[in-house]
Nucleic acid binder design. Sequence first.
RNA 1: UGGGCGGUCGCCAAGCGGUAAGGCCCCGGACUUUGGAUCCGGUAUCGAAGGUUCGAAUCCUUCCCGCCCAGCCA
Length: 567
Amino acid sequence: MSIATNEVDSAPSHFIRNIVVEDRERNKNGGRVHTRFPPEPNGYLHIGHAKSICLNFGIAAEFGGLTNLRFDDTNPSKEEVEYVDSIRSDVRWLGFDWGDREFYASDYFDRLYEFAEKLIDKGKAYVDDLSADQIREYRGTLTEPGRNSPFRDRSVAENLDLFHRMRAGEFPDGSHTLRAKIDMASANLNMRDPVMYRILRTAHHRTGDKWCIYPTYDFAHGQSDSIEGITHSLCTLEFEDHRPLYDWFIEQLEIHHPQQIEFARLNLTHTVLSKRKLLQLVQHKHVAGWDDPRMPTLAGIRRRGYPPEAIRAFCERIGVAKRNSTVDIAMLEHAVREDLNRRAPRVMAVLRPLKVVLTNYPEDRVEQLDAVNNPEDPSMGTRNVPFSRVLYIERDDFREEPPKGFFRLSPGKEVRLRYAYIIKCEEVVKDPNTGEVVELRCTYDPQTKSGSAQSGRKVKATLHWVSAAHALEAEARLYDHLFAAESPEDIAEGEDWTKNINPNSLETLSSCRVERLLADAAPGTRYQFERMGYFTVDRDSSDKMLVFNRTVTLRDPWAKIEKGQKK
RNA sequence: UGGGCGGUCGCCAAGCGGUAAGGCCCCGGACUUUGGAUCCGGUAUCGAAGGUUCGAAUCCUUCCCGCCCAGCCA
């Protein structure tokens, strides 16, 4: 079993799995299960693709089958190698392996060309001289049948000759097409003599200038699946109408017949998942790039710190069905927290530092305190954290005038410092000009050292902290949903969806203080900053400045209460 | 008004004639040196209306609502 599937104890049933089970019971395809993930290399993969990847690789692995990675590169004008490289690394990062079965629709251009000739031979395809506009006119509408092209009844010999000359480059772009001869009156528009080949003088990222005609996706996709011996061609709902066409090609060609099954694509709240819109976000600099941690791309999610295991668990949990749906992004975030809670080492980091001086603690004294690395996993051990007279605590953990329900630090009140002592706020020092609180003067109770006999006194809150003299400075990038609106694409007439971009989706804090051991953390390493959230070392991090991405916050009931009070 | 596909809790989603799983969110409460985690408990009669049946979310009929299709995009 692959690492990708063994973490899910019992895979929930869904209709595609049921179909596969039935197919195997009937010994269809000799019980073989062979799927493929067929992206077009014209953009970066996103969380929606992850659903398809997990489905395709997951269902095959579950039944001892294989999954191919196939690039559907039939339109050279939109496709680039940058994208195939990113797709490869994203699929690998997600945890899946396609072995040596990396294919391209362009690998099959010769075969496809022969298939086209065969259809011409059978009188099932013809070269059309109609322009794109004319083809559209002849196609009819949803409620009216189309009309036959005047070129529909050319002889086989003439069609063959014309098709060869198309390939030979005798005609200008767009002047001719090869069309399937099916039924211009079909209620299914896809069956109204769809275009199989178009003339396009654009260099292809793999085949170079070899071809000036390219098969359409509709003519290439099904046959590519067939050539690869795919048993179950899983695709999204919008291709349901195309299935009769793909079946028609396969039957006319008398080749292996994969079974196409359609499922609903993933939609997520507070984000967009269309390639066009993601491209726009990048090109118009609404984000820093495809791997901006706010992007729903796998590259972005990875940089943000989402673990692949969490993505897989999420994909398993959302299920597979035919109903259009939009999953609450909270479900994704939950999967991330669940995974990181188990695995991320805990560390103390103060994001917005407030100086605390313990007036009754000796100037030059430093204690090494014992701290647990992960309460969920004792095997992760403990570490020493230095404690001294001058500390930093989180600014949000002090309120001069505490609201109802606030049980952190305020004048005259006590709290525990995690792994250390109970302290009491004796004095608030303010900047005489601005009135801003700049320092707290507190006393500590030596009797309350963590773990000691008399440490049992209860206080309402425990704060994280860092020793001023020992801490390292760091930058933290706090991310929020890229879109404040739940459904950013729901907009009024004349409005632009980009108006829903959350202006506060990124907040950069540059004077954070963190435990010294974070100095050696490699990019991509994930931690829990106690009480603040999960953070991941960014690739921008250096000796000069440590940089952390907030992957996801911790659940924070107090923040919720306070938000409610303000309203 | 053509064709295809859907409509089960706020959001996902099981269920396939025998009397509504689960997860997320939310609300209580227990526990807690992370207001974290964990643990308990709470919340639907299945788009509507008829019908068949001892019995229907599951079968039939009609209706309503949503999504997709008129690229030489995928």
